[in-house]
Amino acid sequence: MRKKEIKTVVTFHVTADAIAFEKRCKELGIEGRLIPVPRVLSAGCGMAWASPLSEEERVRAIAEAGDIETEGIWQCEA
């Protein structure tokens, strides 16, 4: 089975935000991918962005820029 590790996970209200977030991360070369929301998190949108913790600062910077709406940023096994 794939080994889980603690990651930075971003949740969203709607799919459009998740895809916009993925697009931005890819443009900036941020490592990560869209995953189904882990059950420990409660989120509106069924998909979440997961990055290694080493990318957390850059991921937070995107969320804080405010033009892409996020629901929350978490650290959890994914």
Partner: peptide
């Protein structure tokens, strides 16, 4: 928007 398989994501990316 229905899951995160590549097929579902490709649809979501196309629509976005």
């Amino acid at each position: 928007g229905r899951g995160t398989t590549e097929a579902a994501l490709d649809a979501a990316r196309t629509i976005y």
